[in-house]
Amino acid sequence: MDKRGNSVLENIKVNYEKLFSAEKKAAAYILANPEQAIMMNISELARKSGSSEATVVRMCKHVGYQGYYQMRLLMSHDFGKARPTYDENEMLSSARRIFESSAARVAALEEAIDLELLVKAVRLLRLSRMVFVVAAGNTSPIATDLGFRLERCGIPCSYSMIPEHFLNHVSLGTSDDTIVAISRSGASKQVVQAMELAMKKQMHSIVITGEKDTQLAEHADCVIQIVDKKKQALDTEPDSHLLELAVSDALLYINRHFDALTQNAKDDNKEAGYGDDVELLLSEYKL
């Protein structure tokens, strides 16, 4: 299409009438809900707009982009340019405000993460012959850090920042192994491929993600969902991985105190106690 606007939303508007009817559903949803759409993966957008993933891709191409991923990145950039500026002196004069905002994001995990689920995940890790920790893109360092630290705890791990390497490693796994897949969107191609290989090997699986309703999480034994309720406090960018690190630390903390925690659960199975335990875990690494 020939017409181009100055932003992604303008491009959609000027080319809207030339789109096919199915494509208009996806375009209309983005125009009506741009801030929500910018945080969605392609599967979520297709479902919310009543279209299909293929339709979303065609719509993106018809308004001048290579695909949804590129359009989403550029739309994020558009929103970044449009954001209001803050009083720089106020920000720089209060480091406490910056750290308190980050601490609030971590503390909010207490509402979404269940201690029993974390204990179940750690039990799988401890019983595994080998743990494969996989992630792609800028989440790869999180996987490498978790794998290295689990090894320091005596849990055999395989991890790599190169997708070809971790895919090959997973393909050599067995049903006695566990895969830990980390993807905020739940749609990282190489991570999904690794999960598919693990399922063929009948491995146990743990998924750390921001989205539960995805192919990645569909067949997982444990889905640890990251709910970033405080992400707008200081205009934090969506590529922050503070919460993934917090979950990694929680898993390592539980592993370190596994015997005591499981014994306490046997001695006192009162449901009300779990909230306090999660708060205790999170307090270990609050900023």
Rank of each mutant, 00 (worst) to 15 (best):
H62G: 12
G5C: 11
V131R: 12
C60Y: 07
A198W: 05
P34Y: 00
S52H: 02
L282G: 08
D268V: 02
T214V: 02
T178G: 06
V192W: 06
A265F: 10
A121G: 09
C222R: 05
E244Q: 09
A103V: 08
G5D: 13
A265M: 11
A28E: 01
D145T: 15
T209V: 14
C157P: 07
S51A: 06
E111G: 03
I224F: 11
K81W: 12
R72Y: 03
A22F: 09
A26N: 01
L167W: 15
E110C: 11
L242W: 01
D87M: 02
V180H: 11
E196P: 00
N33F: 04
D87V: 07
I30Y: 03
A135C: 08
V119M: 02
G147M: 08
A181Q: 09
S160W: 10
S175P: 05
L45V: 05
V56S: 01
A272L: 06
S52L: 02
Y68H: 13
S171P: 01
A108M: 07
K81C: 09
G147P: 04
N138T: 04
S183C: 13
D276K: 04
M195H: 09
D221R: 07
A104T: 00
K18R: 06
H257I: 03
S93L: 13
D276W: 01
V106Q: 06
K25L: 15
D221C: 05
V170D: 11
I155M: 00
Y29L: 06
N33D: 01
N33V: 01
